[in-house]
């Protein structure tokens, strides 16, 4: 266990008052609350371990047992129950071979039941990571489990259904900008050169439209306008129209298989981007 990491979490919080937020951060880091971490929190915040343990066991959001990489919760609220949530839970138990509250032996999926998710009209509801499934049937359980294992519904909007992958190429030399070696969220990343104040590096952007994950080789401060260029012909990708959100220059890339152009804002931290397909702007 990373003692230093826990200590830094505790010290960055404001002393005695922030026990829940400390525990939340630890849980985010380790997926659960290790015993040693609770002891450390008690010692550092000068509270008794019994207090910390009481808080950790009181809230359902905290777990003292290691949890899986993915979390699937089935709603057992009144409305979902009436609409047959019990059979859904039975189906999950059957297929995952675990009871509610347990984690599969391969540490992939933690299966839980919850009492209400507040979407009673859509029941039975199942939540996989951050994706909500409405009107779930026992037949649909297999797909949910498979999708969850594949990480389709993970946090960061990984593979959200409304996201689609784009293949882009340089508008000048027409060579593909897709990096087949580096995958971001199960899709090849877009690779471009980035330069700023004489520093040069490479930037990989998720090819999922509407998704802002990126890998930078260098630290670029937020709110900086950078130059993006093609890694093959070094042509600057900067294009005419400014960003719809902040007005900064945008970089354009040609979308493969059509006349579409994707524009992304060159200001770091800005999520402005738009897609021009056959001249029809679909701003987002």
């Amino acid at each position: 266990m990373d003692t230093e990491r826990i200590l830094s979490i505790i010290r960055s919080s404001n002393g005695k008052g922030g026990i829940i937020s400390i525990l939340e951060e630890i849980q985010e880091e380790f997926t659960y609350l290790p015993e040693a971490a609770l002891r450390l929190v008690a010692k550092e915040t000068e509270r008794s371990l019994a207090d910390i343990y009481g808080v950790a066991t009181f809230y359902k959001a905290f777990s003292l047992k290691p949890r899986g990489r993915h979390c699937v919760s089935a709603c057992l609220g009144t409305a979902c129950h009436v609409r047959g949530a019990r059979t859904i839970v039975e189906e999950f138990k059957e297929q995952l071979h675990v009871s509610p509250g347990e984690t599969t032996p391969d540490k992939e999926i933690t299966f839980e039941t919850v009492n209400c998710l507040g979407a009673c009209a859509l029941g039975p509801i199942v939540v996989s990571d951050e994706h909500y499934f409405a009107n779930v049937t026992a037949r649909g359980v297999r797909d949910i489990i498979q999708g969850t294992k594949d990480g389709t519904y993970g946090s960061n909007g990984r593979g959200r259904e409304d996201l689609f992958s784009l293949e882009v190429s340089c508008p000048t030399c027409n060579r593909s900008l897709m990096d087949k070696e580096q995958y971001l969220y199960d899709h090849p990343a877009i690779l471009v050169n980035v330069s700023m104040n004489g520093k040069k590096g490479r930037l990989r952007i998720s090819s999922l439209y509407g998704h802002f994950a990126e890998i930078r080789e260098h630290d670029i401060p937020n709110d900086t306008i950078v130059n993006l260029s093609c890694p093959h012909c070094s042509a600057n990708l900067r294009s005419g129209p400014g960003c719809v959100e902040c007005g900064a220059p945008t970089a354009s890339m040609r979308v493969n298989g059509g006349d579409g152009v994707m524009r992304i804002c060159t200001r770091t931290g800005c999520s402005g981007h738009m897609l021009d397909l056959d001249g029809e702007g679909t701003g987002q």
């Binding site: 015993e35 609770l38 509270r47 008794s48 371990l49 019994a50 207090d51 910390i52 343990y53 009481g54 066991t57 009181f58 809230y59 359902k60």
Partner: peptide
């Protein structure tokens, strides 16, 4: 002045005891 025992859990699972059901150092 010990704080060796405390409430644990919630609702019908609420109980009083030492953390982790182990003999407490306090």
């Amino acid at each position: 002045m010990a704080g060796a025992i405390g409430f644990r859990g919630r609702g019908k699972n609420r109980s009083i005891g030492t953390p982790f059901d182990m003999r407490s150092e306090e």
